[in-house]
Amino acid sequence: MAITPTGPAAAQAATAASMHQVDGFRSARFGMSLQQVRKAIAQDFNAGADAVSEMDNAAEGTRVVLVKLNALEPGPGPAVVSYIFANATQQLRHVNVVWQSGPAPSEAQRNQYAVAGIQLTRYFRELNWKPEGSVVAVANGPGSILLFAGIDPKNAMVEVVASGIPLSGANGQPAAAPTGPAQLRVSYASTVPAQAAIAPNAVPPGAF
């Protein structure tokens, strides 16, 4: 299975009230305190105390709560969920969900990550996003692809990125065989990062 980079997704006509809202991940909501998020983690996952840890990211000026899970659908295998808090406000602002294989996965294992990425992309594509506020299947550097990114009316964002999976090259020809681990990442952000692949207010329409 190979995923072909294409271009922006077709914008869906929708009123602000009917558009999808990116409020956080599961029970954890943007703006929650660390203590509130820890309660949300206990509610969402059957994770033991040894599966939850905290760390500071001095370079980013953030506090991070990490949850290691043995499994989390739809991704294959173990996952790590990172809840990121701004030091200035001590409030949740970003969540990353990452599935990653071992250093040398088989072709079948790489395809499992690709299939999970496609499932997530289909799910998010069916939601209503702000006009010209979503893209699909955009090359994201060597061996990496932005499967989906969407922005809600408040400029909160979700994106799905995969790497180390089979991709198609130019003119539909197979790209170089992937190397290294396979990874699938879903990110939820309370505001659109400066380096985001789509801008809050201008994404040309297209089709997947």
Rank of each mutant, 00 (worst) to 15 (best):
residue 1 M to H: 11
residue 5 P to F: 04
residue 7 G to T: 02
residue 12 Q to A: 02
residue 14 A to M: 08
residue 17 A to F: 08
residue 17 A to K: 12
residue 20 H to E: 11
residue 21 Q to Y: 05
residue 23 D to G: 11
residue 27 S to F: 10
residue 27 S to A: 12
residue 30 F to E: 02
residue 30 F to H: 12
residue 30 F to V: 09
residue 32 M to S: 04
residue 33 S to E: 07
residue 35 Q to S: 14
residue 36 Q to K: 06
residue 37 V to Q: 01
residue 40 A to F: 05
residue 42 A to V: 05
residue 42 A to Q: 03
residue 45 F to E: 00
residue 45 F to Q: 03
residue 46 N to V: 09
residue 47 A to Y: 10
residue 48 G to F: 12
residue 48 G to R: 09
residue 49 A to R: 15
residue 49 A to Y: 11
residue 49 A to G: 14
residue 49 A to V: 15
residue 50 D to G: 03
residue 54 E to N: 10
residue 57 N to T: 05
residue 62 T to M: 05
residue 64 V to P: 01
residue 67 V to H: 05
residue 68 K to V: 14
residue 68 K to P: 01
residue 69 L to H: 10
residue 69 L to A: 01
residue 70 N to L: 13
residue 76 P to G: 03
residue 78 P to L: 13
residue 79 A to I: 12
residue 83 Y to A: 02
residue 84 I to T: 02
residue 85 F to M: 00
residue 85 F to H: 04
residue 86 A to R: 11
residue 87 N to D: 15
residue 88 A to M: 13
residue 92 L to T: 06
residue 92 L to D: 09
residue 96 N to Q: 11
residue 97 V to Q: 07
residue 97 V to F: 06
residue 103 P to T: 05
residue 104 A to S: 14
residue 106 S to E: 10
residue 107 E to G: 03
residue 107 E to R: 10
residue 107 E to D: 15
residue 110 R to S: 09
residue 112 Q to N: 08
residue 118 I to H: 08
residue 119 Q to A: 14
residue 119 Q to G: 11
residue 120 L to T: 07
residue 120 L to G: 09
residue 121 T to M: 14
residue 122 R to Y: 01
residue 122 R to K: 10
residue 127 L to V: 02
residue 127 L to K: 06
residue 127 L to H: 07
residue 131 P to E: 14
residue 132 E to I: 00
residue 132 E to F: 14
residue 133 G to N: 06
residue 134 S to C: 06
residue 137 A to Y: 13
residue 140 N to M: 00
residue 146 L to M: 13
residue 146 L to C: 02
residue 148 F to G: 09
residue 148 F to P: 01
residue 151 I to Y: 09
residue 152 D to I: 00
residue 154 K to E: 11
residue 154 K to P: 00
residue 156 A to M: 08
residue 157 M to S: 07
residue 159 E to W: 10
residue 161 V to I: 15
residue 163 S to P: 00
residue 167 L to V: 12
residue 169 G to Q: 09
residue 169 G to S: 12
residue 171 N to S: 13
residue 176 A to Y: 09
residue 178 P to V: 08
residue 179 T to D: 01
residue 185 R to S: 06
residue 189 A to L: 14
residue 192 V to P: 10
residue 193 P to F: 07
residue 193 P to M: 12
residue 195 Q to N: 15
residue 196 A to K: 12
residue 197 A to C: 00
residue 201 N to K: 11
residue 204 P to M: 06
residue 205 P to Q: 09
residue 206 G to S: 11
residue 207 A to H: 11
